[in-house]
Deep mutational scan, measured.
Amino acid sequence: AEKTGIVNVSSSLNVREGASTSSKVIGSLSGNTKVTIVGEEGAFYKIEYKGSHGYVAKEYIKDIKDE
């Protein structure tokens, strides 16, 4: 049951290796980017990222929809 969301930041949002603010940053997404959410862990969504997965803070994702 995948969902999509939109990155809701003015600059960019860090994509992390794990569901923690201390996890390594593996990339970033600019505002209004559409993401595919494959799961959630605590305050983070697990998303599809560059052929693999990454984690982003839930508070910066809006317009969550079921695909």
Rank of each mutant, 00 (worst) to 15 (best):
A1S: 14
A1D: 08
A1C: 06
E2G: 14
E2K: 15
E2P: 12
E2I: 15
E2W: 14
E2M: 12
K3C: 05
K3E: 03
K3F: 11
K3P: 04
K3M: 08
T4S: 12
T4G: 06
T4Y: 12
T4F: 15
T4C: 04
G5A: 04
I6H: 04
I6W: 14
I6M: 09
V7P: 02
N8F: 09
N8R: 06
N8S: 11
V9S: 05
V9I: 10
V9E: 11
S10T: 14
S10C: 06
S10D: 08
S10E: 12
S10F: 07
S11W: 15
S11C: 05
S12H: 15
S12D: 10
S12K: 15
L13S: 03
L13F: 02
L13H: 02
L13P: 04
N14H: 08
N14E: 13
N14Y: 12
V15H: 00
V15N: 00
V15T: 01
V15R: 00
V15E: 00
R16C: 05
R16E: 01
R16G: 04
R16Y: 11
E17D: 12
G18F: 11
G18T: 13
G18L: 14
G18K: 09
A19T: 08
A19Y: 05
A19M: 07
A19N: 04
A19H: 06
A19Q: 04
S20V: 08
S20W: 06
S20R: 09
S20G: 08
S22A: 13
S22C: 06
S22M: 15
S22H: 13
S22R: 14
S23A: 15
S23Q: 04
S23W: 04
S23V: 03
S23K: 04
S23M: 07
K24Q: 12
K24N: 12
K24W: 06
V25R: 05
V25E: 05
I26W: 03
I26D: 00
I26F: 03
G27N: 02
G27V: 03
G27Q: 02
S28A: 10
S28G: 07
L29Y: 02
L29V: 12
L29P: 00
S30Q: 07
S30K: 09
G31K: 10
G31R: 11
G31A: 12
N32L: 12
N32V: 05
N32Y: 08
T33M: 09
T33D: 09
K34Q: 11
K34P: 14
K34Y: 09
V35H: 01
V35P: 01
V35I: 08
T36I: 13
T36R: 11
T36L: 14
I37R: 01
I37Q: 00
I37M: 03
I37Y: 01
I37G: 00
I37L: 05
V38F: 07
G39D: 07
G39A: 07
G39E: 07
E40F: 06
E40D: 14
E41Y: 09
G42P: 03
G42V: 04
G42S: 07
G42Q: 07
G42D: 15
G42H: 08
A43Q: 14
A43L: 12
F44S: 04
F44A: 03
F44D: 03
F44I: 01
F44G: 00
Y45G: 00
Y45K: 01
Y45M: 03
K46G: 02
K46I: 13
K46F: 07
K46Y: 09
I47M: 02
I47H: 00
I47N: 00
I47F: 02
I47A: 00
E48T: 14
E48G: 05
E48C: 04
Y49S: 01
Y49E: 01
Y49R: 01
K50C: 07
K50L: 10
K50A: 13
G51T: 10
G51A: 09
G51S: 07
G51R: 05
G51N: 15
G51D: 08
S52N: 11
H53Y: 11
H53E: 09
H53S: 08
H53D: 07
G54N: 01
Y55H: 02
Y55L: 01
Y55E: 00
A57N: 15
A57I: 11
A57M: 13
A57Y: 12
A57L: 13
A57H: 11
A57P: 14
K58H: 03
K58V: 05
K58T: 05
K58W: 03
E59F: 14
E59T: 13
E59Q: 09
E59M: 09
Y60S: 08
Y60K: 05
Y60C: 05
I61G: 01
K62T: 15
K62C: 05
K62Q: 09
D63G: 09
D63E: 14
K65G: 11
K65Q: 14
K65V: 13
D66A: 09
D66E: 11
E67H: 13
E67A: 15
